[in-house]
Structure formats: C-alpha cells, structure tokens
Simulated scan of single mutants.
Amino acid sequence: MIVTKCLITIATITLLATAANAAESVSVKVLLMQALNAPNGAAKGVVEGKEADAIHAATGASVPIRAEVSTIKKFNQEGCSRLAVKLIQPNTPTKEGGKTDFALNYELNLCRNGTPPNEGMDLGKAAKILGN
C-alpha cells in the first residue's frame, strides 16, 4: 500500500510538472502580449523557438531560458505600455571555464496591435531623420 501511494504521488507530480512546463513554453512576443493584457502588467515563462535558439547558439549552452516581462509605465493611449524584458539563462559557461547566469535586459514601448504608441513621439523630427 505504501509503495502504491508513492507511485501515485510520483506519477501525479510528474504529470503536473510536465503540464506546467508545456504551458509555460512561449515566445517573447506571446509574453509581451500577455503582459499588456494582464491586470498586474506582468508575464513570465520559458522561451522557446528562434529566440531561444539564437541565445543557445550565442552562449553555447542549452539550458532553458526564462523570461520575465513587467510593465514600467502605461501610456494614455489605450493598450499601450513601456515594458521591461529580462531573459535569463542559468549555468551558462564563461570563457574562464566557470558558469554564470546569462541575462539580457531591454525595454520597449508597445501597443496591443503590435505598433509603438504615439505618445512621446516627435513625428516631425522622425520625418526629418528619415529624409521625408
């Protein structure tokens, strides 16, 4: 009976972990949209696809990449925010032979429709820079 309970517990934990990992694997774009739509303005998950492939190729490590997206500022324009993105790859090899956490941080202004917000843009200055 004890062995049966242990096996059931192990099977349950394995199924839950597998389901949680499958649900969390996403692209950075999906996480950005989730953060824009989330009441708390945040989203996190494990990055997969071409973004993860590019980081794996650059670092030489295959450890999964965690992503955290948070809202820094909401613009007056509906559905638009300034977002902070943090990508973390633990146990990345260094040139010295050790291992460290590789982190890539950046910020961007984004609206739910995929464009940047108009707020704060000097469209006249941008036109001059672009030669229009």
Rank of each mutant, 00 (worst) to 15 (best):
N113C: 04
L7A: 09
R112C: 15
L36A: 03
L130F: 03
A11Y: 05
L36Q: 06
S27V: 02
L104E: 03
A127I: 13
A52I: 00
K128A: 05
S25I: 13
R66H: 01
E107C: 07
S81I: 06
P39T: 03
L110P: 01
A17M: 11
G120L: 14
L15K: 09
N105Q: 12
G60S: 03
E119L: 14
G98L: 02
P90W: 03
N105F: 05
K50L: 15
V46W: 02
E107Q: 15
G131A: 06
Q34I: 03
A57P: 07
I2A: 13
S70M: 04
L130M: 08
L7R: 06
P39H: 01
D101W: 01
N76Q: 12
K125N: 09
A43I: 04
G98S: 05
P117L: 08
K95Q: 13
R66G: 04
I2T: 07
A43W: 01
P90L: 02
L32Y: 04
I129G: 03
G45Q: 01
E48V: 14
L87A: 00
V26K: 03
T18K: 07
C80Q: 00
H56M: 09
P116M: 11
M121H: 08
P39L: 07
T14G: 11
L123E: 05
P117T: 10
Q89H: 07
T71G: 10
L104Q: 02
M1R: 13
M1T: 09
A103H: 01
I65P: 00
T12G: 10
V47K: 03
A11W: 06
